[in-house]
Amino acid sequence: MRNINLIDIPKFNDSRGNLAVIEGSTIPFKIKRVYYLYDVPSDSYRGGHAHKEQFEILIAISGSFNVILNDSKEKKTITLNKPNIGLLIKTNVWRELENFSSGSACLVLASDIFREEDYIRNYNDFLKFVDK
């Protein structure tokens, strides 16, 4: 799948613990919005949308969860469970998040502020949009 990539986030560790740093060229866009998901019940799911223009990086800063990705031609599931690995999701990729472990938290770094018109929230509309 061409519109996703795993990104290594620089990690520094010593006897006091680990420190992960996101700055400069760590990610391929300027961060305009940061949000996080937490206390998601294990049998719930999040996402269920795609973006027309916005890029996002998802990071499991605690626990784990699955990200189901679909670009209309290929479907892939990625388990995020390391706080120094980010999943870059570019445009035109349907995403769903599920199977949240107890205590998990998902940090999202976005390339744009919230704009409802950038979201595709209906899967059939998504298929029409990407198959233009």
Rank of each mutant, 00 (worst) to 15 (best):
G17F: 03
A20E: 11
A20C: 14
V21N: 06
I22V: 15
E23W: 07
E23S: 15
S25W: 00
I27K: 03
I27M: 03
F29H: 04
F29R: 03
F29D: 05
F29W: 03
F29S: 05
K30N: 14
I31W: 00
R33P: 08
V34C: 11
V34A: 07
V34L: 15
V34R: 02
Y35G: 03
Y35C: 04
Y35N: 09
Y36T: 10
L37G: 02
L37Y: 11
V40Q: 01
V40C: 01
P41C: 09
S42A: 14
S42H: 10
S42E: 14
S44Q: 14
R46H: 01
R46L: 02
R46S: 06
G47Y: 03
G47R: 01
G48Y: 00
A50I: 06
E53R: 12
E56F: 02
I57N: 00
L58W: 05
A60W: 01
S62Q: 15
S62K: 14
V67I: 15
I68K: 12
I68F: 03
L69I: 10
N70Y: 01
S72Y: 12
K73R: 13
K73N: 15
K73D: 15
E74T: 15
K75N: 12
K75A: 10
K76C: 13
K76M: 13
T77E: 15
